[in-house]
Design a protein around this nucleic acid. Structure first.
Lengths: 132, 132
DNA sequence: TCAATTGCGTTATGCTATAACGTGTGCGAT
DNA sequence: ATCGCACACGTTATAGCATAACGCAATTGA
């Protein structure tokens, strides 16, 4: 799946996420885009839905926020599972992939005949800089 | 950590979760307990906070819901990471543990000097019964 | 040209979670 | 015994996250 040309709203939302140092909530994105004509949450959520579908943005379920994918070039769907380490001090997020973890989880799913569609792996804690 | 005697509200919430076939949202729990005098969300959230702290209930971040721990006897903190397979058809949740997954994630965290505090592993899809 | 699709804007609403206040109860230390 | 503290509880209000439902405009392809 290649990413289509983004619409105006999608580009605006994507740019905001790309420039952000940390994940942003939909409402934070909305506030940052009021100067560009955004007035309602749905404008943000609709853009986010598409960006998530294209795989260029990830949703962090545990903090109700969104981040740009750390791999601008490759297609994120090809990495297998994606995991996130989220620092609760500085807010920074490290996106990573571990094939062994993927493999073990896939093995469990297969052996239980569970058809996976979406997965969430999020670790919250403190990054190297923030840990005392 | 051993689980203290539960208060009345905590017991009521725990019982509702234990009897449920699927995870419940806080507001669903509230509705089920109106006959027992519950009137406000905080009554549920406060009980849930304690039950989570005691490790007898888990929160499913990806669906904003709560389930009773599948291991009534043991202390859930001793399992290492907990993972959940959530069926989007029937709502059923399977709680499982995989030491190899734990080990790999811990290894990544250690090598990146990331101090983990809470982790979320949730797979959404369709269980064996529901998959066509 | 017509119909279907897609994006967009707006209003309203629903769901999830917490802040802030005050009350009552049990219990240990003085 | 009573004072002070910790904790659970109840209530009202509010904050934060997400979607339903409507209609309009632009695009595309039969």
């Amino acid at each position: 799946m290649t990413t289509p040309i983004l619409t105006k709203n999608q580009s605006l939302v994507f740019d905001v996420l790309t420039k952000a140092e940390a994940p942003l909530s939909a409402y934070t994105i909305l506030d940052k885009l009021r100067d560009h004509g955004f007035r309602a949450p749905l404008q943000v959520y609709r853009a986010l839905d598409k960006l998530l579908e294209y795989g260029v943005v990830h949703r962090l379920e545990s903090i109700n926020s969104f981040v740009a994918c750390a791999h601008p070039d490759e297609n994120c769907h090809s990495h297998g599972l994606v995991a996130f380490a989220i620092c609760e001090s500085c807010g920074q997020v490290i996106e990573f992939h571990d094939h062994e973890v993927d493999h073990r989880l896939m093995h469990w799913l297969k052996s239980h005949k569970f058809k996976a569609e979406k997965s969430t792996i999020e670790i919250r804690g403190h990054c190297a800089s923030c840990a005392a």
